[in-house]
């Protein structure tokens, strides 16, 4: 059973509908007692980083998620949910994140190294480039997935970069370490590629596979 963490931010419906399409049993809840009974958690999210962290902190979910991961249980963040896994973000103001993965979240520069301006948000379909093998990417095509974001993860730890996409820089697209994984794009909106990836997460959760470095 997968638990979708409801903390008042965003696209729960599309994520849950994706679970139904794949045939993965799930429960949506904001109740920690309910979430505790699941085998793996999905942290979706659309919205602003400070608001999201504020809610996670005041409802005890931040602490709960840190303990969850410390216990080696699977957690997958999507879009903002992935960014929340990192140490801090500069969206609106400096805000501390969950600190489960090394790195910070910064705004797209909007200008390439040579001074050419480019558009922000990074919005639309972009291609994945895989960097290492990971159960989450098993039999997933290096195809196009759907991104919508104005902030991007910056990390010096290349070990956690499972896949990137090219948008005037390398954009961390799939990240992971131990039992924590995340996608910057929306797998639930990324057609076949996204569905395959979610199905893989479901398998990891069902098998109770403990992911390690």
């Amino acid at each position: 059973m997968i638990g979708i963490v409801d903390y008042g931010m965003g696209n729960l419906h599309s994520v849950s509908k994706a679970m139904e399409r794949i045939g993965l049993p799930y429960v949506i809840s904001e109740d920690l007692e309910v979430l505790k009974t699941t085998d793996g958690l999905l942290l979706p999210g659309v919205g602003a980083f400070p608001d999201a962290m504020d809610i996670l902190n005041t409802t005890g979910k931040a602490e709960f998620l840190r303990q969850w991961v410390a216990d080696g249980k699977p957690l997958m963040g999507i879009c903002l949910g992935m960014q929340l896994l990192f140490e801090e973000s500069e969206e609106h103001r400096q805000t501390k994140g969950l600190g489960l993965l090394p790195g910070k979240v910064v705004k797209f520069q909007g200008q390439s190294a040579d001074g050419t301006p480019y558009k922000v948000p990074h919005m639309g379909w972009n291609q994945l480039h895989f960097h290492q093998q990971h159960p989450l990417l098993n039999d997933v095509e290096q195809g196009y997935v759907y991104f919508v974001h104005s902030y991007v993860v910056q990390t010096e730890d290349t070990q956690i970069l499972l896949a990137t996409s090219d948008y005037h820089q390398d954009v961390p697209a799939v990240v992971g370490r131990g039992s924590v994984v995340g996608t910057q794009f929306h797998p639930e909106k990324s057609s076949v590629v996204g569905m395959d990836l979610l199905a893989n997460f479901g398998q990891l959760v069902e098998k109770g596979v403990k992911l390690h470095d």
Partner: peptide, 8 residues
């Protein structure tokens, strides 16, 4: 935009 983010 403040509530949901500019992207939507």
């Amino acid at each position: 935009a403040d509530f949901f983010g500019a992207q939507c």
